[in-house]
Structure formats: C-alpha cells, structure tokens
Simulated assay, not measured.
Amino acid sequence: MRTIFLMLSVIVLMSSCSMTVPKPEKINGVSFVASGDSISDKHVNPVVKLNANYASLMPFGFIRDLAHPEIIYSGKRQWFGETEDGVKQYASALNKKGIKIMLKPQIWVSRGEFTGFIKMGSEEDWQTLEQTYSKFILEFARIAQEMNADIFCIGTELEGFVDERPEYWHQLIKEIKTIYKGKLTYAANWNEFNRTPFWNELDYIGVDGYFPLSQEQTPTLAESRKGWQKHKTLLKSFYDTYRKPILFTEFGYRSIDYAGVKPWLVDREDGKVNLEAQSVLTQSLFDELWDEEWFAGGFVWKWFIDYESVGGIENNRFTPQNKPAEETIRKQYSKY
C-alpha cells in the first residue's frame, strides 16, 4: 500500500511539474520604422500592448542605382531615427519598457529597386562597394555594441552581392566579430536563404519570410496552412543541417486581395483592401511555425511610431496597426 502511495505521489508531482514548465521565449518582434523625431513612452506603449518583446531598428544607407558602388548614410537629410543618436535614443526608450533590440542596417536603392539585384560592372567597382559597405556596417556594429543590442543583422536581401563576393562576406563577419559581441544574423530573402554561404558563422538563420502560400483572393486558414508545408520542411532541414534556429527577420502580409500569392509585393502595388486575408495568412504562419522548437520567432513588417494615425480599415499596406491582424498578433505574442 505504501509503495502504491509513493508511486501515485510521484505521478502527481511529475504532472504538476509538467503543467508549470514555461514555454521557451520567442522573439515576438516588430520592425520599428524610423522617423524624423525622437520617441517617448507614447510611441513605445503600443508595442508593449502588442505583447512584443523585440524591436528591429533599421537605419538606411543609400545608393544611386543598382550598379553604383558608393553608399551614403548619416547625412544631413537622414531621418533622426536612422542616425547614431537616433538609433541610440530609440533603443533606450524601448529598453526602458523591456523591449530588446535587433539593429538591422539596410540599403535603399534609388526608386526602391530590389537590393538583391545590386551588381557592379567592374572589379574596381566591386572593391569600392566592399569598402563602402564595410564602413557602413562596421560603424553600425560599433553602435550595436555600444547600445548593447541583443542581435545585429549584417545585411538585408543582398543576394547578388553575396553570390558574387562570398569571400568578402566571410571576412566581413570576422571583422564584425572583433567589434560586436552579441548574436549575429543576416536577413536573406525567402528564395535566397537556401544558397547563403555563411550560416555556420552566424547565430540565427535569418529569413525574410515572404513565402507564397495561396492563389486565392481570400484564402482560408486551412488552405494557408497547407501552403506552408513545403516551406516548413525546407526551413526545418536548414535547422537540422546547421543547428542554428530559424529567425524571420521580417514577416507579414498586406491587407489586400490575393495577399498570399506574392507576399513580397511592395506598397507601390495597388489593390482592394482585404483585412481578412491579412489576418488569416498571419494566423497560418503562427499556427505552423511559432510552436516549433527550431523556430526562434520574428519581426512583423512594419510598425510605425505614430500609432493613432497609421493603418486602419481602409489601409491596404503591410502594417497590421489598427486592423484585425493586430489582434491576431497580440494574441499570439501573449502566449510566450
């Protein structure tokens, strides 16, 4: 009888312990868009209310065209939130509310052309691009170290640059590591990450997760989840190969018809507002990926500081602010 009692006690104790084991922390992030002004609690509180625990800060450097090798940044015409002082001020305001930081310097090509198509016309220009990109990214690596950023992203959707100059990137990572001591990632486009050559040297496999999911005007949740299966299998295979967690350095959908066909389409593309499509597609991503141990989380694209005046039910852009998708994200982020 005493033996049976002891066995029952052990079972009860084990059951109790299993029920109280917390879920592992996920990166519940927002891509926090810079502006010309400093920020305060007014701008950070909506991020806290979303149950986010990370924000990506994105200072931009600019090049004239896809074949131009010189990167211009931190000039007089730069947004305050993209300067060194601005990035540090944003980070401080977010940190005070418990929000961790990924610093993610990016390149903007004139007229919004896709950075993955950057390609120099000569060896001399490639070397100039390497020199100017190193200056740009190493300066922000220093800033990331000084402000104790939790993650530093070494580049965003630069597949042509990476394909053409892989040895440069291996050397750049070594130089970054002499300056910045935190976690590193790279934001590979959804159709780029499978050939990015330096995942072994980073802490996260970073993916901008704009995978096509559905051909429907308003996809169902079941159809959207089905659309994830082949992508999910590929992502898991990369985790298994490199033993590095998958991080969606960007994810999101426009509130527009057929949002699951080509989720990467930029804001210049017009279309009818479809709030349901945005919310359903976002939920499918959460359902398929967020509970996986190999998935680290991600940063929703995109979140603006002036909360009251952005998004809304007549807006067909990426931001989930003041739309049903915001509540979808809030509920998911509250689970971790």
Rank of each mutant, 00 (worst) to 15 (best):
E308T: 13
I313E: 14
S279V: 02
G312I: 09
A259K: 00
V300P: 04
T282G: 05
F286A: 09
P263G: 10
V273E: 05
N315M: 12
E308K: 15
W290F: 14
V273C: 08
F286L: 07
I305G: 07
V310W: 11
N316H: 15
E288D: 03
L285H: 00
W301L: 09
K323R: 02
D267N: 12
F295L: 11
A325W: 04
S279H: 00
Y307K: 10
W303Q: 06
S309D: 15
D267F: 01
A259M: 07
S255N: 12
T328Q: 07
W264S: 02
R268W: 10
T282D: 08
E269K: 14
E314S: 15
K302G: 07
I329L: 14
E292A: 04
S279M: 05
E269F: 14
K262T: 12
W303T: 05
P263I: 01
Y307N: 10
E314N: 14
Y258I: 04
V261E: 12
F318P: 00
N274R: 11
V300L: 05
T319D: 04
F299V: 07
L285Q: 03
I256L: 06
V310H: 15
G298K: 03
D287R: 01
D270G: 12
E288F: 00
P320A: 10
I313F: 09
W290T: 07
L265D: 07
V280F: 02
L275F: 02
P324L: 08
S309N: 15
W303A: 11
W294L: 11
I256S: 02
A277S: 12
E288P: 05
S309R: 15
S284V: 01
F299T: 09
I305E: 09
Y307L: 08
E314V: 04
E293W: 12
A259N: 06
Q278N: 06
A296I: 10
D291V: 12
G311A: 01
S255M: 07
T282N: 05
A259P: 01
E326C: 06
N315G: 07
P263L: 05
S255Y: 02
E269T: 15
G271H: 03
D257R: 04
P263R: 09
K262H: 06
T319M: 04
V310C: 10
L281W: 08
A325C: 13
A277H: 03
P324E: 01
T319K: 07
Q283D: 06
G297S: 06
S255K: 04
N316L: 08
L275T: 00
S279N: 11
V300C: 04
Y258W: 08
N316C: 09
P324S: 13
P324W: 04
Y307H: 13
V300A: 03
Q278F: 02
